[in-house]
Design a protein around this nucleic acid. Sequence first.
DNA 1: ATTCTGACA
DNA 2: TGTCAGGA
Length: 322
Amino acid sequence: MGEGTDDEFYEISAVSRLTGLSTHVLRVWEKRYSVVEPDRTRTKRRQYSRKDVHRLTTLKSLVDHGNTISSIANLDTRVLEERLAQVTQLENPEKSYQDTGCQVGFIGVHARKAVRDAADISEGFSLIAEFPGLDAMVENLKPGALDILIVEIGSLFPEDLESIQGGLEQLGARKAVVIYQFAAADITEPGYTEKVITLRGPVTSAEVLLACGANFDRPEIPRSGDLRDPTEVESEIPDRIFTPEALQSISKLTSVLQCECPQHIANLISGLSAFEEYSSRCENLNEDDAKLHAFLHQETALSRHRMEQALLYLLEKEGISF
DNA sequence: ATTCTGACA
DNA sequence: TGTCAGGA
């Protein structure tokens, strides 16, 4: 229910980065010991699954701990995990709960890859549940199943933090990591909500791990100074051209193209759209600043529309259709 | 440009 | 485990 189908694959260079094993070692381990048997493309290129990556990282950890690859190569992934858990516990017993009990649940879209990669990279960080929303997660998971809840949200308001806090309690989780695009500055302050850590998206897998592992604070976002009077709102708000899903799939196209521009532009549009929603919500929230936020809303929408045009052009030029 | 296999140090 | 060659 939580995981299910894996539609994502890693090519060998990506697996090398994620596991720390050289491409040659990956091939040799496969040839000599069949540690993993990744699917192949029609042109014989390896397509590693998430499970492959996970198995390889635990094998690598064990080898780093003095094991011989030949002695552990054909052991089941389960027992590999158990061995590693024993070894790491013997090494630092006081930290054991940190590394052992980190069951993570995730809600979101854009950060999914970063979260999954984080789980693949790090032992003791296992992604056991992914749900479309907080309600679904609370319904389907029994209390205590989760240690950490990771929630991705476009724009973050105090009420959102409250419901996350509520979900946290129902799930019996230790803490929540909230990945947001836009939020009022003061609610992202480290101590604003107990047990909730905020992270500005887009995030890397390393940032996810850091946020989950430590309750330490990170550098804060600078404040804006005084604001000018807004111009009048004169134009219409253009409709969105790309759906969030379309943007998401475009941002995954990167390997096909020479440059990563479509990915970056898609991310920009996602960000602008999130800010659009944010500013329109502000528009209705603050009486006095309504005009200012209407202006911001409009300008953002126009920018977003402009970037959508750029993306359309780029996709057409690269011969990509949807 | 990247990955593939195989041979060899 | 790393390096090289020679293709795909």
